[in-house]
Computed example of a mutant assay.
Amino acid sequence: MTAVFVHGVADTFRIWKGVQRHLKRSDSIALALPGFDSPVPPSFQATKEEYVDWLIDRLERIGEPVDLVGHDWGCILTLRVASLRPDLVRTWAGGSGPVSAAYEWHEFAHIWQTPGVGERWMRSLDIESFSRQLEAFGVPIDEARATVARIDDTMKHCILQLYRSAVNVGAEWEPRLTEMSAPSLIFWGQHDSTTPVEYADRLQKAIDAPDILKLECGHFTPIQCPQAIAAALEDHWAHGNKKMA
């Protein structure tokens, strides 16, 4: 059985290294989404649907249901995968990624979703300035600088395309959440200013999840609370095994 971790925007697979370090199991992989310090397949347009299809393909290659975990956009995408292809998912866990028609996109999303404005923002991206903004969200400054330094032209293009395909993602994808069947765990930062914790409560009702791990941190839970998330995941997976037995 494999644990598969999916990152968000504008992160890379590296956001999961702290969580993975605290796990007892060794059969975990952190996927690199196309364009996020990873090659982009030919003709890939970086829409939300294409990222879901890409994830489904990767899970199909594993050949057995996985323990699927997502943060930020990784949460949104894995929720969609789990609702469309429950046969691929043994357990699901995720957070900081609302799939709700009631959700209002954050400031950066509005910029990236606006043609012309998003391109100008990307062209003028300053590593130090954006790093300090991430630091204000709770990311250690050295890690923030490394993260921002990886935002190359390919990632910039993919971010813009993804967000512009997802203006109405909550209304489009929320209805299928009821079709999720995998045992689920939600983890969320209580002080998340971009995706408020109330959306964890909404998600819990939508997917009938028994638990929410509300953490004393902001948006970047895998960085800020890796040990707590790892412990909760281990317990979640153990209970998933019992339910499958």
Rank of each mutant, 00 (worst) to 15 (best):
E49V: 08
D87M: 07
S26W: 08
I62P: 13
G70A: 05
S100T: 11
P34V: 06
D37G: 12
V66P: 06
H106K: 07
E49F: 01
P42I: 05
W121L: 10
G35R: 02
E49K: 04
V66N: 04
Q20W: 09
D87I: 07
R58T: 03
P34F: 04
L59W: 09
D72K: 06
W16P: 00
L125T: 12
L84W: 12
P42E: 08
M122Y: 10
F44G: 04
S100D: 15
D87R: 07
D37N: 13
A82V: 05
I62F: 08
R90I: 05
W112V: 12
D53V: 08
L23N: 11
G95M: 05
T47L: 07
K24L: 10
L125R: 13
I62Y: 12
P65Q: 08
L77K: 14
P98S: 11
F36P: 11
G116R: 13
A109M: 08
A109I: 09
D72I: 04
L59G: 11
D126V: 03
W112S: 15
S129V: 15
I29M: 12
P98G: 12
E104Q: 15
V69I: 08
L59F: 11
L79G: 07
R61Y: 11
G70C: 04
A46S: 05
L31Q: 12
A102S: 15
V52A: 10
G74I: 01
L59H: 05
K24V: 07
R80Q: 13
G35M: 01
D72V: 04
Y51V: 07
D87Q: 07
L77V: 13
P65V: 02
E60V: 06
S100A: 14
G35F: 02
H71D: 03
A46V: 00
G18L: 05
Q20K: 15
I127D: 14
G18S: 03
W73K: 09
L79T: 09
W121S: 14
G94K: 00
G74C: 02
F108C: 09
M122K: 09
W121H: 14
P98T: 13
E49Y: 02
D27N: 15
K24W: 10
F108N: 06
I76L: 08
I29W: 12
G116C: 14
V19R: 04
L55S: 10
A30R: 14
T47A: 04
Q20L: 14
Y51W: 12
A32I: 01
D67P: 02
A101S: 12
L55I: 07
S100G: 11
A93P: 05
G63F: 08
D37M: 09
W92I: 02
R21T: 13
G118F: 04
G94Q: 00
P86R: 14
V19S: 01
W73Q: 12
P41M: 07
V69H: 02
P86I: 10
P42V: 01
G35C: 06
G18C: 02
G74D: 01
G35I: 00
H22K: 11
E119M: 00
T78R: 04
G35K: 04
S124D: 07
V40Q: 13
W92K: 02
